[in-house]
Every structure is written in C-alpha cells, then in structure tokens.
Design a protein around this nucleic acid. Sequence first.
RNA 1: GUCGGCGUGGCGGAACCGGUAGACGCGCCGGACUUAGGAUCCGGUGGGGCAACCCGUGGAGGUUCGAGUCCUCUCGCCGACACCA
Length: 810
Amino acid sequence: MAVTKRRGYVPQDIEPKWQRIWQERGVLRAADASDRPKYYNLVMFPYPSGDLHMGHMRNYVIGDLYSRFQRMRGYEVLNPFGWDAFGLPAENAAMKAGIHPEVWTRNNIARARAQLAMLGILYDWSREVTTCDPSYYRWTQWLFLLFYERGLAYRALAPVNWCPVDETVLANEQVISGRCWRCGAVVEKRDLEQWFLRITAYADRLLDDLALLRDWPEKVRVMQANWIGRSHGLEVDFPVLGLEGEKLRIYTTRPDTLFGVTFMVLAPEHPLVERVTTPEHREEVRAYVERARRASEIDRLSTEREKTGVPTGGFAVNPLNGERVPIWIADYVLMGYGTGAIMAVPGHDQRDFEFARRFGLPVREVIAPPSGPRGELEEAYVEPGVMVNSGPFSGLDSRAGFDAVADHVERLGIGARSTRYRLRDWLISRQRYWGCPIPVVHCDACGVVPVPKEQLPVLLPRTYRRLSELPEFYRTSCPACGQPARRETDTMDTFIDSSWYFLRYTSAQEETRPFDPGLANRWMPVDQYTGGVEHAILHLLYSRFFQKVLHDAGLVEAVEPFTRLFTQGMVKRGGQVMSKSHGNGVAPDDLVRREGADAGRVYEMFIGPPEDDAEWTDEAVSGAVRFLQRVWRLTLEPGSFPVTGSGADPALLRRRTHQTIQRVTADYDGFHFNTAVAALMELANAMQDHLQRGGERGEAWDEAVRTMILLLHPMAPHITEELWERIGGEGLCADASWPTADPELAAEPEVTLVVQVAGRVRDRLRVATGLDERSAIERALASEAVRRALGRERPSRVVYVPDRLINLVP
RNA sequence: GUCGGCGUGGCGGAACCGGUAGACGCGCCGGACUUAGGAUCCGGUGGGGCAACCCGUGGAGGUUCGAGUCCUCUCGCCGACACCA
C-alpha cells in the first residue's frame, strides 16, 4: 500500500514555485514613479564567461539579500542586472571551438540567467543591459563622440603597451608588473597611433573628490589616490654647455636640494640625447638607447636590478651656483613622467645615490639631519632637515626651502612651479573584433571625421575577423565631403562599456539618447555598489571619470556615481580561488539539487565576514540545511518537540525576539551577514527551548515565528515565503514590512555581573540591571570565591562598571 | 623595498568605547528514541588538574585595576604599489 509519507521541508518542491510567483508578480520591478524613497542597489555586472559557480554567486546573493531587505524597509529599490559582454574570451572561445563570439556570448548569458534564477536571485529584468547589443553600444559610440566634441578624446602617436599574445594594445592600468592583466604575457613597447581619453584633465577632481566617498573602503581610496599620484614640484631650466640657447628642463619635488646636484640624467628616449652627446660617446650612447628600447617593461621597471646608464660627454650648468655637471642617460628615468629628465641629487634621493655609487659620481650633503651634518653618506638622507652648502639658502629649514628656492627660480625666470601626476591618459584603442567600433572615419581630405550621431550605430559586421581585414566594413565615404574614406578599424577598450552601464539602467529602453536625464537624476547616485576589490582602480576610476564628464555635459547631476561601496572577498575551495581552471567550483545546479537554494544562500552568508576571503567546506553546508529544517519544524510542527523541562517564560521569548530584530537589522545594515545568521540561529534555539520547557504557543510564540520568517526572508526567500503562506501571512513575504524592535521588550531585567579580585575573574553574579555601586560591592563581598581570593583584607580600590563588572583591588 | 590588512579551539569564525575570550556553526565524544538512521532529540567538547585553581588570542616587552582590543619591537601570511624624480 502506498502510504504518503509526510515529507516536511523539501526545498526542491517549493523553490521553483516561488520563483515563478515572484516573476509573475514583478517583485523587484522598480517603479520610476513611487511615493517611497528610492534606493539604487547595484552589483557589478559580470562578463558572461560560462558557468557561474558559488564564488561568483557570493556577490549576487549579497546584492539580492540587500535589495529584499531595503525593499521590506520601505524603499523603492532599483536592482538591475546586465552583461559586460564584449571582450577577448569570446574571441578565444570562437577561435578554439569555431563558434561566433556573439553566439558564444548569448549562450553563456542564457545559461547564467537560469543559474541566477534557480538561486532565487531577483532583478528588474526589464532594465537588462547587454553591452554587445547595438541598442547599447550605439550609445557607447554616442558618448565617445561627446568626449571627442569636448576635446576629451584624441589620437596620438605614442609608445604604447602591446600584448603579443592578445595582439592588442593595453592601457597603463591593464599592465600589471609589466605583464598583460588578462593573459600574463610580457608586454612590449610599440610606437602606434592610438585613441586616448583625456582622463588626466580630471586628475585633480578624481583625487579631491575621493574625500566625498566617506562610505568607500579606505583601502580603495588609498589605492586610487596612489594611482593618480599627484605631486607638487618645480620645473627648472639647466643651460647646456656648448649648445647656446638650449635648455634642459627638469622636474623636481625637492627644490630645496638644488645645490646638491652632481649630475643630470635623461631618459634614453629624451629628444636632447642626440645633441648633448659628444662624438667620443656617440657609439656607446646609441647602443644603450637601442638596448633600452628593446628591454621588456619587466626588466626595465624592476627595482631589484642594478641601475645602468652611460655618460653622454655633455655638461649642463646649475643655474643657481654655476656649477658644471655631467649629463648621463639611464633607463631609471622615464620619458613618460615629468620632463623625462632629472637633476640628480645623490645625497638626498636613494635612486640617484645608488646610481652615483655605481658609477663613482660625487655625493654632496645639502640637507643636514637634526643631529648635524654627517659628512660621509652611507645612504641618501630623504627626510627634512637644515639646508647646508646651499649658498644664500644655507641655514634654512628644508621645508621652508621649497618655497624659498621656488620663488627665487621663478623670479629669475628660469623655471616655474608645476603639478604632476602619475596618472596617464587612458589608451582605449583595441585591435580586436569583439568590441565597440570607434565611430570615426579617416578621410584624406578632411582628416578624422566623426560619424554623425544620427548614423549611429556603426555596426559590427557579422563576419568574425579583424575589422582591418574587412574591406566591406572599412570602405566608406567621408561624412563631410563624400569622397571615399576609410573607417576606423579599432574597437574600444571594454572598460568603456562598463563605465556608464549604471546610468543606462535608469532608462534602459530609451531610444533617443543614452539615458533619460530625469530618470538618471531620479535614481543616481548608486546608493550601494557591491563587487570585487580587483576593480578598485580600473573600473571604479573610469566610472568616476565618466560620471564627471557627463555631469559637466549637463546630463546628470551627481558628481560621484557610487555613494557606498562594498568589496567582497573571494571564495576558495581546497585553498584555491574557485574557478573553472582550478576545477574546484561549486555549481549552483548541484547545490540546489542536493541542499536547495536557500541552504546554499544561508551557508554562503554564514561562511565568514563578506569582505574577507572564505573557504568553502562542503560538510559545513549541512549546518545551514539543519537550521532551515528546524525553522520549518518550529513553524509548522511545534508539537513535535518533546517537553523535557519546565519554566518557560513568554516574556523571555519576547525579549529574545526583539533583541534578534535589533541585531539582525544592524547586521544587515552593516553587511555583517555571518553574525546575522548566528543571531537567527540563536532565536531558533530560544524558540526550541521555549517549547521544550513546555511553553505555550500564544501571542509571544506567534510573534517569534512571524519575526523569524521575516528576518530570515532576505537570506532564505523561498522557505520563508512558503512558511508565510502556511501560517496565513498576508500577501507575499517579500512584500511584508520589516519588523520593528521595541527597546523596552528587548531590555534585559537582569545581567551577569563579573566579579574580579585584582583583575582576575573570581565569580559571576546575576543582578538586576542598573544595580548601584554600594549594593554591588556588598553582593561581591558576600561571595565565597571572592572571600577566598581576597582573604581578610578590605579592597583598597573598587572599579565598578555597571551591568558588566566589578573589580576589587586589595 | 614601501604602504596597507590579518594571525583567536581540530575547522569556519564571535567578542560594542579596553571590561565574562571562544557566540553561532562544522567536526568529534557520550547518551536517548529506533527494525534501521548519514534523521531527530539530550549532554559534553581550548589545554592542564580529583579539586581549589593555573595556563591560554603568533612571539617578546610596555601602559592599565583590567589588554584579543592600545603602544614598542619581532616573526609569519595575504594584498596593493613597485625606480613617477
């Protein structure tokens, strides 16, 4: 006989049902018109590279949890999603498997969407954005033209980073320690004519506005500040001996050390190298320049390596003291920074010091430490001090010396104060197929001509091949004069695509402009942005740049795009980051089939502080499973817990309930999801204890059950929705209001008072909250353990921290 | 090399402003129920000791009535930057 066994909590039975209902009811669809205050909750959109694993999902679970939480608290939440869909992996896959990049990309998107859905992660899909879709990249092109019109996009011949494996150029930000950020190949230098965005024009604002980002992790702000690397200094002209009227301009941040110059160094690429070199040094210099050009970035930038360089035979004159100093060339001086030439002060710059030591050049002390001049230097002294051997400036504090020397130099008309940045302009040309075409035309007669905005988009051809190999793409006519012309065949860096997607979400269906300014202002700035730290510089800096440019163009009000940033840690398994290549990813599909989506979500939140890396342990998931089963049983089968004790107290249960509301609310707010789970587990323990002490299931019990369901819902949406329905809750749990804690009900009438003698714990007493000191001492002295420790003595001193501790010091 | 961050039971991790170290969970040990249990429930679980107590947050000092928390030095791990004048 087939007996239908009661099955209890079976996640696989209920999860698809609620996913369908949420979708049908349009839960989490953001209303552009609403009485509720807006809340823009954003997770970094992914590159659709294939299967998502639970490492990726951490980001989306956090985002979903937070959306649901803010929604229950009464906000109109915008929680959109999309795909950073242009990029190299699609091309690599295409070459390997013979699939068109677009097909590969679209397949991956479909797959990832399904995986998100099976975890109960909700988005307003009506705002979905896909960067490789012409409806999106049309506006990426439009924005490029906006930058062009505003003088922020330009073409220049420059030595650029070339990745020989990916066969494309890279931005500075995409070269990590001399290697390609994507494939790890050693990057080469090539002289190419390329497109740049003038991000340096925004360097000051990008730096100064970091101060507005109080809710960003300190770490990220510091990284951005270092990357921009603003420095204040002085440019000075040094006359070159034997070249009348020729000046060698240098940049220094230490004008106070000008009297310590003992030689000059030019970058090998410096334009004056040829002319300052004397005939007898010509051969040597030429060989050195040649070698420097060929050296890989890695070798050249390595600080480990001993410094190299050669003398040019030429001399410059120190304009302040008339001294002749030799001119050298060395590759530790970079053409791309400052003026590509330095005055070398080996006494007070460690790099110059090392160079001087290597080549037997003189070292002169011009800044004395507080202990007085040291004469012979063992290393460069880089701290401030008193100026010595500095002519009229001797005796001055070196900090004041900065301005004194700078004023003097400016008065003489041989230099000027100057601010420099480490940040370079953003190289955006890519010689790849799968990207957004740069919308310009090259005409022999008219030069560079932008494609008129009404002709956008410049469509990517269907044929998968480099655009420069597709005449049907690049053969065109000039929009200005109509003569035959050639289309630009470079595509844009994909970081451009992701620099404005958060704006597109605010009006994703807009067909006449990139976004509706009114709606952008309704939703922007993003209130909460969540993603990985790996984007601390690249994406987050570029997006800030775009936001500022669009602000200046009058398209959006906010000057910063992301108010609060949270960077979550990576998920590891077996000590390694979860990834396809390591083969250690936990597939959501398997997890959902075995333990259910809710258990997976709860475990992922319980695993540790979200900002830290976490180690995924398969066995530990069972803790989350058991917890959910217990919540199910407490709610629907409370009678199944055996009564094994007595003394249940409804007031205690209420207290725990309200304390849990306080804790979970604060924890969700502060992104402490691991302790929020712990708090809910404690409430479950308290509820179970209540039942097992024979507690009645009255008002206090019902409140505990309802509260548990509501507080748990953002983390475990399916089971809570099902339980909500079964206990007769009104509407959807997802639509319910967040519970409010009553501080009076949450207050503890009694506390444990720790009793110490001489700082060592001797006893613990249960006392009424707010007990006065006199009574506390009395109670403490009455303790047997205290008397043992204290002996017959009276305490000479008492430290009393009400409701916490009393310390009796003999 | 420089700058940040982190070192807490067998494991993941709690601990507000300096005030009960180890919440919560995994694992483990013992027990109950059971035809069975990888279900469920009960109890235990930092180390030493019969106990009173003692020791214990990488290590060594210091400040304090009191230190995981503050200070100095030191070791180890992780991250960022890496000749930017």
